[in-house]
Structure formats: structure tokens, C-alpha cells
Design a protein around this nucleic acid. Structure first.
Lengths: 218, 218
DNA sequence: ACTTATTTTTAGACTAATCTAAAAATAAGT
DNA sequence: ACTTATTTTTAGATTAGTCTAAAAATAAGT
């Protein structure tokens, strides 16, 4: 697989639920920051290689083979992210561009040794699960903070939006993976939340609350 | 610079003495495992970008800019090699292919943090010096083992041939960077050497002796 | 110096990935 | 159901890097 093919496979994976859902050519083109005509060409090529299911005018989804390929790339991406944050002092908003490059390095040994070197991490710095060699991963039970109930304790386990702006916002407000929240007030007018965590209070907008995943375990 | 451009620059650097010497189109083509016509095209392109000095039919050399670019790539290549060997249990004959890919990852922060993480190593696993951010490196005084004198102690500081076959030969004979040698006999007939090291004797051919660098410090 | 051999360059064509513009299919609105 | 709008596909062109085959320049041999 070429670098570009890999990127399309990854894009299709993220667009439909793990690539199982059929997604439109336009959606693919948008995700790949290219034109629909280019997307069509590439989709045909991937179809020839049995990586996607494709019927003209009906959108694409990943075949079993395509899903495995996607998970492999994602495994590499997320392991590199852990490496960058834990070993090379990257912040969680700096890792994406570099991991995007590193995920295409081809070497079985490299990725398995890296996995071991990092102590077989299960989640990346954004809380997303890391697939194992066979493409299996635990998806933990999580909800968006916006749907949390009052008076209960929740743990931050991930973020939905991984844009630099959002991650920087979280950093300045000392919100990180593992942070424990209590929702002490829900404002009915704009659906903003007043949170209590680390012995501080903070009001967050609904927009923010919709982009933080919390576990319902506790 | 594209990946291919980087590879040509690196190739030209290694062919002429750090790219300063003019090398022929054919030599470049051979090093890049491509045809002379392709090499000509690329050389023209690099010339347009001021990375090489090129006069038709007269061969190429690197400009100051080109030399810096080459050293940058080599810096990355060698740092990654150290990482692979020291942290991910690669043997020195396994690192090349992967480092060849990793050297093209673009991120200033990545490479500088990696340098720090590895404790600013000065030499790679084959004994080759690692340039600093500005392209400076120590080239230590070294000679080939074939030119060593009898009854003196030499330290192995590098290898010339880095092929898998040769590195495996060294491994099976327990020759590594830092190994101390004494030449106890030179056979005039075929120029083979009888060595004493680690309390063992070994006869090596001239071919082998020409591919091991030893320091003349001690 | 003149012929032959080698090296290097040019010319034209190919592949992967992209683009624009136009055509075809599907979806939506009344 | 028929027109309009949107989406998707096709057709043809472009760029980076490569190739083969032929032409041009340089080097070598006598």
C-alpha cells in the first residue's frame, strides 16, 4: 500500500463506524482534503485491491481486509503518540502531525518493539484505545460530559475534538486524562455546566461539554 | 524537499567526500539503483534548487546548502539507528532499512528531543559520527585494520562495509565497537591477519581487515 | 588524428495522484 | 411526474519520478 492509499483507508475507517458504514464519495474527498473526482479514482483503485466495497453512486465501506489495514495504521499512529508524549516531552496537542508521518513507517519489528518499550499501553494520550496486533481493542463505556448527571463523580477518559485549540483550552484549565469531575450545576438556559475538580470550580460551555468523554464506571 | 530528492542528496554526499568531490552521473544512478537518464533529470532539478553544482557532462557536487541538507538527513538516520539499537533491541545489521525510512520524518522538535532522550550520542551503532544541529561532527583518527602494525593495541571504532553479511560475520566472531585487537601475525602470501582479542585468536582475510576501522589512539 | 567505446543527455512514453470541466446519475421540490 | 439541484463519475490534462531508445559529448586506442 502506498502512503496515499493508507491515508484513504484510515479516512474511510474514521468516517463510517470503523469503516463498516457506507460513506459518500464527497465525504471521503472532504476528509482527504481533495476533490470528489480524485476520491472516485482512489476508491476504484482500493476496490480493485479488495480493500473497500464499492458500488458506483452508492458510497464505500471497508472490507474485512480494509478494516484490518486501517486498524494497523491506527495502532501505529497511537503507539507513536504515546512515545512522543511519554518519552519525548511532546504535549498532546503537538503529537498529531508527527504521528501522521510516523504511522506510515513499515516494520513489524519496529512497532512490536515500540509497543513493548512503552509497556503495551492500552490508550493513547487522547484516551483513544490502541488496537493490538490483531486489530482488537477495548472500547470502554464512556459518555459525553454534557450527558453527565448531577452529584456523581466522573473520570475524564478521552476527548472527541482533538484540535489544537481545544487541547490547549483543556491544558490551561488543567483538565487531563484521569481528571475527576463532579457536575454541580446545569444551567438550563445555555446548557453550560459548572464543574468541580481539583478543588476548583469552572463553568464550561455546552460545546466544551460535548467534546469531553467521561467514564461511568465510578 | 521530497523523499526522492533527499535520497539523491544523501547519495551524492556519500559518493564524493561529503559531497565536496564531483561525482559522475553514472555513479549517482548506480547508488540510487536507477538509470543514468533518471539521475540526469533529478540532478537538473536539484541544480535548479541550488542544492548541487552541476555542469553538463562534468558531474555533480553538493553546494554548501546541499551539504547541510545531507548532514541533516544523516543526523536523523544515525540518531534513529542509536534509538533502534539501544531502546528497541535491534541488532546493528537490522537497523538500516528502518532508519532509511525514519530519516525522512519532518519535525525539528522530534529530532532534537530524540537526541536529548538518547543523551546526545556522538556515534551511531556502526561507529559513524552523528552531526549536531549545525552539521558539525568529530571525525576521529582512524585507520583500516589492514594497515595496523604488529604488537600494537587497536580499538574497533567502526566498519566500512555495513552489509548484513559482514555485520553478521562480526557478530558471530564477537567483534563489536570497542573491541581491542592485537595483530599477532601478518601472512605475506594473502595479507590475512591473525588477531588476538578477548583472549581468543582469529585469522581474518584481507577483505575483512579492509572493512574494519580501528583507532590509533592507544 | 581518426575511429571506437563509453558516458551522458535528450526525447518521448508510462504510472500514481491530482486537477478542471463536462456528462451522467441520483435526490429533492413542487 | 417533471424540472431543478446536488452528487458522482468520466474525460482529458498536469506533475514527479521513472523508463527505453536514440543522439550528443567525452574518453580511449591505435
Amino acid at each position: 500500500m502506498t502512503l496515499t492509499e493508507e491515508n484513504y483507508i484510515k479516512g474511510i475507517y474514521h468516517l463510517g463506524k470503523q469503516g463498516k458504514e457506507s460513506v459518500s464519495t464527497n465525504a471521503v474527498a472532504k476528509a482527504m482534503k481533495t476533490k470528489a473526482s480524485s476520491a472516485t479514482d482512489m476508491i476504484k483503485k482500493l476496490s480493485d485491491k479488495q480493500l473497500v466495497n464499492y458500488v458506483k453512486y452508492q458510497g464505500v465501506s471497508l472490507t474485512a481486509q480494509g478494516q484490518l489495514a486501517a486498524k494497523n495504521i491506527i495502532r501505529k499512529h497511537r503507539l507513536w503518540e504515546v512515545f512522543l508524549v511519554e518519552k519525548l516531552n511532546f504535549t498532546w496537542d503537538e503529537v498529531h502531525d508527527v504521528a501522521e508521518q510516523l504511522e506510515h513507517i513499515k516494520s513489524e519489528k519496529l512497532i512490536n518493539e515500540l509497543d513493548a518499550f512503552l509497556n503495551f499501553p492500552k490508550y493513547d494520550p487522547h484516551g483513544d484505545p490502541i488496537p493490538d496486533k490483531n486489530g482488537n481493542f477495548n472500547s470502554i463505556d464512556k459518555i459525553i460530559l454534557a450527558n453527565a448527571e448531577l452529584k456523581k463523580i466522573y473520570k475524564c477518559v478521552g476527548v472527541k475534538d482533538t484540535s489544537t485549540d481545544f487541547l490547549r483550552y483543556l491544558d490551561t484549565n488543567k483538565i487531563a486524562l484521569g481528571t475527576l469531575f463532579e457536575v454541580i450545576h446545569k444551567e438550563p438556559f445555555d446548557n453550560s455546566l459548572k464543574l468541580m475538580y481539583n478543588n476548583t470550580e469552572l463553568v464550561v460551555s455546552q460545546h466544551v461539554a460535548k467534546n469531553i468523554f467521561v467514564s461511568i464506571e465510578l
